[in-house]
Every structure is written in C-alpha cells, then in structure tokens.
Amino acid sequence: MQINIYVWIIVMALATGATRVLPMILIRKPIENQFIQSFLYYVPYVTLAVMTFPAIMDATQVPAAGALALVGGIAAAWLGAGLFGTAATCCIIVAVTELFMV
C-alpha cells in the first residue's frame, strides 16, 4: 500500500521543520550532557558518509566511475573547492570516465 504522496510531503516538511525550529523554542540554555553533545557532533559526518558510499557507485553506469568520483571529490573538497566546485569535479570525473568505459 503506497501512502498518499501529499501526506508524505507534508510529514516530511513537518519533521524537517521541527528540527529547525525546536531548538529555537525549547533550548534557551546550551546542552550540557557530554555524551549527547558528542553523539550529535558525529551524526552529520556519519550520516552523510554512510549515504555517500557505496551509493555513489550505484549512481553511475559503471561502478568504477563512481569510485573515481568519490576519490576525486574527496581530493577537491580537501583542497577547498567548496560546494559547487566539488560537485562539479565529481560530475566531470564521471563524464570523462564513462567516455572511455561505456
């Protein structure tokens, strides 16, 4: 049974909005618990890393192109290419790789 897509979009927006607004409403003092702080500190990195690999290899026509894009993207990000620059680097690497491999 597929859920109505508009219900889905609304729930998505409310859940996302809650993470943006709740701290503004609830937290008037900084969080003191060191475990929670540490846990939350690592969450964004872990989530994004888990979502990136190995998914990046499934996104391309040949997995090797995705793998190269991952390596190139890490290098570009490390060298300070920024949001747009890193994304563009990954795209170009895939385009060039698949030119030879597909």
């Binding site: 690592y42 964004p44 990195y45 994004l48 890393a49 979502m51 990136t52 998914a55 990046i56 996104a59 391309t60 026509q61 192109a65 995705g66 894009a69 991952l70 993207g73 890490i74 570009a76 990000a77 490390w78 300070g80 290419a81 920024g82 949001l83 620059g85 890193t86 994304a87 563009a88 680097t89 990954c90 795209c91 170009i92 690497i93 895939v94 385009a95 698949e98 030119l99 597909v102």
Partner: peptide, 28 residues
C-alpha cells in the same frame, strides 16, 4: 551519460560538507 554524471553532484556536495572539517579534527 549526462544523467550518470549529474547524479553524483549530490554526493559531491556531501563530500564538500564532511571532508574539510577533518583538517581541524582528525577523529572526524
């Protein structure tokens, strides 16, 4: 070919978010 190339843009953006902070904290 173009879709394949564009589909990694999102992952590039993720990488741009998580990689640079390593310079300040190796544990990341």
């Amino acid at each position: 070919r173009a879709v394949s190339a564009l589909s990694v843009a999102l992952f590039g953006m993720f990488l741009a978010s998580i990689i640079p902070p390593i310079k300040k904290d190796k544990v990341i």
